[in-house]
Design a protein around this nucleic acid. Structure first.
Lengths: 119, 119
DNA sequence: GTATAATATCAGCATCTGCTGATATTTAGC
DNA sequence: GCTAAATATCAGCAGATGCTGATATTATAC
């Protein structure tokens, strides 16, 4: 019988990955890969709504994936650890090879409107 | 103005990470870290329900994270790429440093019953 | 062919998640 | 102090997600 990590550790890992599992949060982290940005800058870079960005940033900060620094009435956010970018890079590399599968992964994803590719 | 990856790429990355963002799927992948296993073996290792395991395996297979091989009426599943385990390892390392934050990341997670730690 | 074991599929439900729109808070400049 | 800009918070809602329980499928053994 194999020994798995404790349920608590598994849950923590899941939580960590959940930080990466949303397109909006990924956009934000991709934006921060080039260096610190202000909330408003992130809003412009990503095209997301300001409350939405603030919410995701708060989430990412709570999870330790980004860190914040206040300058006047601006708050500069940045990736908190080189390994965050490293994870993004590793995902890129993996994606390059398994993308064919991911395209069709609709098991836990309703087919909805068939998501016509546009890009 | 910075240039983000295309929305399609971001969505694919999000999908990939979503494969890792569920405790049940993580348990399954952790179980497979030690080598291939049968569905029934995974059921025993993880303590999950058989239909549940099958469903998650189908999801992971669609996403290219695990691969399957049929032997008689048994199906042996294994991690499809070394980088899958690598991602799990990197997450472990990152978690060791940011765990304090992740513990408290309840932004997109209802506090519910406060989840008393037991492990 | 029949029975049985291993795996897959599916409907239905409860819950979680992320977005929007409105509002509160904080800070700088006057 | 007052105003305006930058950011944070919150309620409410639409939709996604994961689980269970029942059932279907596949494959071996007899």
């Amino acid at each position: 019988m194999l020994k798995l990590p404790s349920p608590k550790t598994i849950d923590l890992q899941a939580k960590l990955f959940r930080g990466f599992s949303d397109p909006s949060r990924l956009s934000i982290m991709e934006a921060l890969r080039d260096g610190p940005q202000t909330v408003t800058e992130i809003v412009h870079t990503t095209g997301l709504t300001q409350p939405n960005v603030s919410n995701h940033l708060a989430c990412l900060r709570d999870c330790g994936l980004v860190s914040a620094e206040q300058h006047g009435r601006f708050v500069h956010y940045e990736l908190s650890d080189a390994r965050v970018a490293q994870l993004l890079g590793l995902a890129d590399a993996l994606l390059a090879d398994v993308a064919k599968g991911v395209y069709e992964c609709t098991r836990y994803r309703r087919p909805a409107a068939e998501q016509h590719a546009k890009d």
